[in-house]
Design a protein around this nucleic acid. Structure first.
Lengths: 335, 335
DNA sequence: TTGTAAGCGTTATCAT
DNA sequence: ATGATAACGCTTACAA
């Protein structure tokens, strides 16, 4: 184990005080060019790297931004994390990721973890942490929330118009002549899932189509649920010519179930998803879906955070959703 | 902003010294039951959370394990990260993720970042950091490396038998009667990609089949490359009845390209991937692929790390790969 | 412009 | 069993 190089050692080597070295590192005051040069040289000679802990302890700022996500391996949140990462890049701030696994207790602990790590701000991606807790945290440090709207923190919350997305998706199917459109719903406790059902329903009603509860199957945002739901639908002999799945992962499941039942997409059944996961461009056929600007959302959240850290307002904007028409939807065959 | 509760405040409130409180927190010495009770109560009343920075500075241990990954949003590494997370759960240690984006400079900076954050150990997932640098780091603190083998650190490196996986995949196709098997290779600079080509070639030669360079198309592990490669293959009119793609993502691209060209999988062309991504079970048809125990690998790496942190040897084992036969491969039609 | 010295919130080493 | 007190490595008034 090599001994660690401290700022003091650098100072001694350079024949200056540690404050001077600190000033040079932080650019916090004027230092004569000669000394700066010299110190800089010695720093790199000794391969000095400041101890972030000591720095954080002394200054009260750690340059860390905590990011509470639900699943580090989720294809959906992945791009958002990447967006956050990208926006923070080069700002001196670094993201610190931690997952809550859709589990309240874990989420709460994750927040405590971040706080005890003295992060300078927290970005929360969805999840179920009570509004009150987030409000509390927001009183202590900058907070930006994605996918939820917290009373009193509206300015720091970035939401997506799930209703509009679902509405567009369903309208698209209607405009292709579909009249019996099934919906595979998402995890019932999720606000997003509820909004998508509402959007679906509103679209039907906007053209006077009946809302048939039998056509709405419960799901949970995972492939298996889509598979099961579509299987049930086919086996129950309810007629439908199109399916709107509340997310792409379930759409994949639906796709496979239809395939197993000998139904072709899009010839026999049109299929729309929601999210536009990276893989949806490469399914067979490529999936028509509602695109969420997930990476942009991450970027926007991080930029809002940077603004808060600068003492400005977050001013994160509501992000728009858009339907990407690919090949899984087609005009209904006149039968 | 609420004021922070320090250990000192707790001590004062409880009428004991801060050392006593520290001892209670760390269970590092005997404290009378009465005092412990009381202090514990006050701690929760005041909602006290130890400052990890101060603790790390004083003790030299931060309970953080740095994890250098390449892409936080990669479907492949995702499960590994999750495995690491899971294995660390409840041990007091926490992972700190950082991405190198397959970019040497970034990777080196990421390592410096982790070191300056005083992590207690580092887990490296693949990437291109020079062996020497990793050896250097390993002299300072526990290091576990996934997907590479570093001279002198063999005991702390977890590798996968890519050769064997590719060999199995190719043999599987051969046993189904295929004689003209194309291979879409991975990123040429990756050791894994090279090993997979070797495995493919060895399998062919093991049954006396010729290795035809025309059947090997370059790729880079991404969907688009698979798409392009398969398109080239079909358009070049080289005959082939099966494709072994160096990873699942490229297999997806191949699948779509074949679809576009009117070739059915598996009726016209059998297809095998490598990785068994979460989505491969739900492609149409579900993909035959070489399963990597990615989550287990993460877990194993983390467990090795925990052993190192305890002062024991890492003793990470070589992990085995296995072919998962699904529906994208089928006996060759006797034509 | 530069140095001195007092923290920052813990842990760890002594005493007692 | 408990309490002073000195680190830990850095930042930041305050002086000079």
């Amino acid at each position: 184990m090599e001994s660690t190089v401290t700022l003091d050692k650098v100072a001694r080597q350079a024949g200056v005080s540690s404050s001077t070295v600190s000033r040079i590192i932080n650019g916090t005051a004027n230092v004569s060019a000669a000394k700066r040069e010299n110190v800089l040289r010695i720093m790199s000679e000794l391969n000095y790297h400041p101890n972030v802990l000591a720095r954080g302890l002394a200054s009260g700022r750690t340059m860390g931004v905590g990011v509470l996500t639900q699943d580090i391996s989720s294809p959906f949140y992945g791009s958002t994390l990447r967006g956050i990462e990208g926006a923070l890049q080069g700002t001196g701030y670094h993201p610190i990721f931690i997952s809550g696994h859709w589990h309240l207790q874990e989420e709460l602990e994750a927040i405590d973890f971040l706080l005890s790590r003295q992060v300078d701000g927290v970005i929360v991606l969805g999840g179920g942490v009570p509004d009150e807790r987030l409000q509390e945290v927001a009183r202590r440090l900058p907070v930006v929330v994605l996918g939820r709207s917290i009373p009193g923190l509206e300015d720091q919350c970035l939401r997506l118009d799930n209703f509009a997305g679902a509405y567009q998706a369903t309208r698209h199917l209607i405009e292709l002549g579909h009249r019996t459109i099934a919906h595979i719903a998402g995890e019932p406790s999720h606000r997003d899932a509820q909004d998508r059902v509402s959007g679906y329903r509103a679209a039907l009603e906007s053209v006077g189509l009946p809302f048939n509860p039998e056509l709405v199957q419960p799901g949970d945002f995972h492939e298996a649920a889509g598979f099961l739901a579509a299987t049930r639908l086919v086996e129950s002999r309810i007629l439908f010519s199109a399916v709107f799945a509340a997310n792409d992962q379930m759409a994949y499941g639906v796709r496979l179930a239809l395939h197993r039942k000998g139904l072709r997409v899009p010839e026999d059944v049109s299929l729309v998803g929601f999210d536009d996961l990276p893989g949806s461009m490469y399914t067979t056929p490529p999936l028509t879906t509602v695109q969420q600007p997930v990476e942009d959302m991450g970027r926007a959240a991080a930029q809002g955070m940077l603004r808060l850290l600068r003492g400005e307002r977050a001013e994160v904007q509501r992000m728009d959703v858009r339907l990407v028409v690919r090949e899984s939807t087609v005009r209904r065959r006149s039968s």
